[in-house]
Amino acid sequence: MHKPWKPSVTVAAIIERDGRFLMIEEETALGLRLNTPAGHLDPGETPEQGCAREALEESAYEFRPTALLGMYLARSRKNSTGEDQTYLRLAFCGELGAHHPEQPLDTGIVRTLWMTPQEVRASADRHRSPLVLQCIEDYLAGVRHPLSVIYTHPDVLITPA
Rank of each mutant, 00 (worst) to 15 (best):
Y87S: 11
F92M: 03
R126Q: 15
R75E: 15
R75F: 15
P47T: 04
G82V: 11
T28M: 05
P104I: 05
T116F: 07
L69R: 15
G97Q: 07
R64K: 14
Q103V: 03
Y72P: 13
T86Y: 08
Q134G: 04
R111C: 08
R77M: 12
A141C: 06
D125I: 11
A74F: 13
R33Q: 03
Y61I: 01
P47Q: 05
E54F: 00
T86W: 11
E137I: 07
A91L: 05
T66Q: 12
R144F: 00
M115P: 09
A124I: 10
G82L: 11
L105M: 09
L41W: 03
T116H: 09
T66R: 15
R77T: 08
D42Q: 14
W114Q: 13
E45M: 03
T107A: 13
L73H: 14
E83Y: 08
L34W: 02
Q85S: 11
E45K: 01
H40R: 14
L34P: 01
T107C: 09
T36D: 00
H99N: 05
L68H: 05
Q49G: 05
T107I: 10
Q103N: 09
K78I: 05
R75L: 13
L69E: 11
N79E: 15
C135H: 08
E95Y: 06
R128I: 13
R121G: 12
G39H: 02
T28A: 06
D84W: 12
H40I: 04
Q103P: 03
V143N: 00
P43D: 03
R89E: 04
T66S: 15
P43R: 01
E54D: 00
L133W: 12
D106T: 11
R89C: 03
L133F: 02
D125Q: 13
L30T: 02
Q118P: 07
A98C: 05
R75I: 06
P117I: 04
S59P: 11
L131D: 07
G94E: 05
S129W: 10
E58W: 00
